[in-house]
């Protein structure tokens, strides 16, 4: 089967400085494949090269080296362009247009007949919760509202594949939930979604696979659960309502103990220490509020990968 997105050896150099020209390699031989129907997370710290990749895919700039194909087509294939949608990182749109006019304009630019574009516009305005603001010019929109307009315009042509550069940025918690639900719905409809983010919880909840980029290089790719190694058998317990003596007793064997306003957060070496923790807490008339296996965070992973790279010959 043809991959929805195939990136081969993509390299992008930026020259900076006017007098003393310096070259910065923002992408360094990036190769990856996204299969049709996948939700694929494109992760990396700030400046990793995520937006650069999107810009190349969206014809804003030509790469220094390498190629990419979307839905099996070359990047400047116009018929392919009508089958995809794109949300830029900072959605700046024509601020003199109303949300409705803007979506209509995007629709006709995507080859939709006028009526179809108009109908689709109303559906999407409702879907992103902007029906009431639809007749306002975009210059009066807040950042989160613009983000919603951006999502709506990316969906205007009912695309097979979506490219979303940080779809959650600028959204309130409710908005994030809505986007997460939207992506889940789109996945059920069989769409392919390629999105960038640095928010692990969002990524974990939505992605089939991820790729992790660091300084323009691919450092990991695969299922997130495989990539984030569980850190041995460590557990983290949150307890409440305990007194100082209990805390002192816990300090005796805990790996780490952080007092909190209600009690403490305790990191245990393994579940063998769990019984002691429960005993001590109950004797002090306290409660175990939560218990979780300690997992590596995305930050930990970055640190591991970066130091790993430094150690490489």
């Amino acid at each position: 089967m043809i991959p929805a997105l195939a990136i081969e050896n993509l390299t992008q150099d930026y020259t900076t400085g006017f007098w003393r020209k310096r070259s910065l390699r923002a992408l360094d031989g990036l190769s990856l494949r996204v299969e049709a129907g996948e939700v694929f997370g494109f992760l990396g710290p700030n400046g990793a090269g995520k937006t650069t990749t999107f810009k190349i895919l969206m014809r804003m700039q030509r790469p220094t080296a390498g190629t990419a194909r979307i839905l099996g087509c070359a990047l400047d294939d116009l018929a392919m362009r009508a089958r995809i949608g794109y949300l830029p990182e900072q959605p700046y749109f024509y601020d003199y247009l109303t949300a409705r006019e803007f979506l209509l304009y995007c629709g006709v630019l995507c080859d939709l007949p006028k009526q179809a574009a108009a109908a689709r516009t109303e559906t999407l305005l409702a879907q992103v919760g902007l029906t009431e603001a639809a007749a306002q010019p975009l210059r009066k929109f807040s950042k989160g509202m613009l983000q919603r307009v951006g999502l709506a315009q990316a969906l205007i042509n009912d695309p097979e594949m979506l490219f979303l550069d940080e779809p959650m940025s600028g959204l309130d918690p409710l908005g994030r939930r809505e986007v997460r639900d939207l992506i889940a719905r789109l996945r059920q409809q069989g769409k392919t979604i390629f999105f960038s983010s640095h928010i692990l919880t969002d990524v974990e909840a939505m992605c089939d696979r991820v790729a992790i980029l660091h300084r323009g290089r691919l450092v990991e790719s695969g299922k997130l659960s495989d990539i984030l190694k569980a850190r041995s058998n460590e557990l983290e317990a949150v307890i409440s309502g305990v007194n100082e003596t209990a805390l002192a007793a816990l300090r005796g064997f805990a790996l780490e103990l952080q007092p909190t306003p209600q009690g403490a957060r305790v990191r245990l070496r393994s579940d063998r220490d769990l019984a002691r923790l429960v005993d001590i807490t109950q004797q002090a008339a306290g409660r175990v509020v939560s218990l979780n296996p300690v997992r590596e965070s995305l930050e930990d992973l970055f640190v591991r990968e970066i130091t790993g790279q430094v150690n490489d010959p």
Binding site: M58, R59, M60, L78, R81, I84, Y86, C106, C110, Q153
Partner: peptide
């Protein structure tokens, strides 16, 4: 400058 071009170029427009 206003980056509205990104939106146009991602669409089927020459």
């Amino acid at each position: 400058e206003k980056r509205t071009l990104a939106n146009i170029l991602s669409k089927p427009v020459r």
